[in-house]
Design a protein around this nucleic acid. Structure first.
Length: 199
DNA sequence: GGTTCGATCCTCT
DNA sequence: GAGGATCGAACCT
């Protein structure tokens, strides 16, 4: 604990409200003595067993158990055999929900991110769910981490505010298989930010 | 024990 | 715009 982590109560609310509230907050990662972090610019909600785009739609399994647990925990999984996706659990225990962090604006430890990503191009560091986990060295080793108390990874409110009118709402990316759920406007991003996964 | 496929990214055309 | 990389979870037999 370091007193800066956003508390569990922040995450234990309606998923879509938390998703919007996360825009502008900082995701901070400690790797040894190195601090790496970025401002959250894009997120997606995955909520309830009736959300066909959510892993929880398949039911309660060892993998999705974390989504059925309390809010404020990291849900990290491997997609396409290559990339990790970083999610934050939300809502009350027994209601499966999480928020996928899809993009960040690089702020701290940019040199570390450049090395981790193998490029110096600022815009290429964290503009995608797979990119940002690579930039921040987020792997399955951090799955189920308690974000409200962890010293390795947590969310911070440093006072930066995103006005509601500056938030764009659209459909989620890469969930075409989800039928009707794919049309839900559960993707949120900062309108003016160049650090978005897709324009 | 075997098959399928994905909440992605990069490269090439 | 298309295709390959690469692996574990989920769902068969």
């Amino acid at each position: 604990m370091n007193g800066r982590n956003l508390p569990r109560s922040f995450f234990a609310r309606d998923t879509h409200i938390v998703a919007r509230a996360l825009l502008g907050k900082k995701l901070v990662r400690h790797i040894g003595r190195t601090v790496v972090g970025g401002r959250i610019t894009e997120v997606e909600s995955y909520a309830g067993v009736d959300d066909l785009a959510s892993h929880a739609a398949r039911g309660r399994t060892a993998r999705t158990e974390i989504m059925f647990g309390p809010a404020g925990y990291a849900y990290i999984y491997l997609v396409y055999g290559i990339h990790y996706c970083f999610n934050i659990t939300t809502e009350e225990k027994e209601f499966p929900a999480a928020i996928l962090v899809r993009a960040l604006e690089p702020v701290d430890g940019i040199v570390y991110m450049q090395r981790a990503r193998g490029t110096n191009t600022l815009h290429a560091l964290t503009t995608g769910p797979g990119k940002l986990t690579q930039a921040l060295s987020i792997t399955s080793a951090l799955n189920q981490e308690d974000l409200a108390h962890s010293r390795r990874i947590y969310i911070v409110d440093d006072g930066y505010v995103i006005a509601p009118r500056d938030i764009v709402t659209t459909t989620r990316i890469g969930v075409g298989y989800a039928g009707k759920s794919a049309t839900r406007p559960w993707r949120y991003y900062v309108k003016a930010s160049p650090y978005i996964s897709k324009p």
